[in-house]
């Protein structure tokens, strides 16, 4: 992709690209990975604790405990977003806080807060899923594709 784009540039632009890139602060990839590992792990540990809590004190099995756990995690993410903590956590953790379901909750809530001033219908309603919408769309779509592949494989390939 990057190389393809570069082909369309003039030699002067290409030269500048290299000149600029040599002076650019690089993303600290390794550091980000380590941070994401620990924060992501911490979030998942909290999630596991919550699911044990629901299993121990309520009649949820391992199979059914997912729903209340996710709801609780999203609720916590909502509170943290509202108090302005989550974006700071995310700057530190990167993917560690974006990948778990809390990141999805944060995407929804932050958009809702942001557009609150434009009213409930066109502001909150219309913009709430402006970030999370694509997650929902492509999540559903990829699930459909995978299901389709599985169906075909089972029917004709004799798999499973």
């Amino acid at each position: 992709m990057a190389n393809e784009k570069r082909k369309n540039l003039t030699p002067v632009q290409q030269e500048y690209h290299q000149f600029e890139q040599a002076r650019e602060t690089k993303r600290p990839v390794l550091k980000n990975c380590v941070r994401a590992f620990f924060v992501g792990g911490l979030i998942c540990t909290i999630g596991q604790a919550i699911s044990y809590f629901y299993m121990y004190f309520f009649d949820f099995t391992e199979k059914t405990v997912g729903n209340p756990t996710v709801a609780t995690m999203v609720f916590i993410a909502m509170l943290l977003t509202g108090f302005g903590v989550y974006d700071r956590l995310a700057q530190f953790a990167g993917a560690g806080s974006a990948v778990p379901v809390t990141g999805f909750g944060n995407a929804v809530i932050s958009a809702a807060i942001e557009h609150r001033t434009e009213g409930f219908v066109l502001g909150v309603g219309g913009n709430m899923f402006k970030l999370a919408g694509s997650v929902i769309l492509f999540g559903t779509f990829s699930a459909f594709v995978v299901a389709l592949i599985k169906t075909i494989a089972v029917k004709w390939g004799g798999l499973g």
Binding site: T25, G84, A95, A98, S110
Partner: peptide, 17 residues
């Protein structure tokens, strides 16, 4: 930020640039 980037409270990691 609201106009040019993500919502202010959205947790996206910004690069050092």
């Amino acid at each position: 930020e609201k106009q040019f980037r993500y919502p202010t409270e959205y947790g996206g990691q910004k690069p050092p640039t």
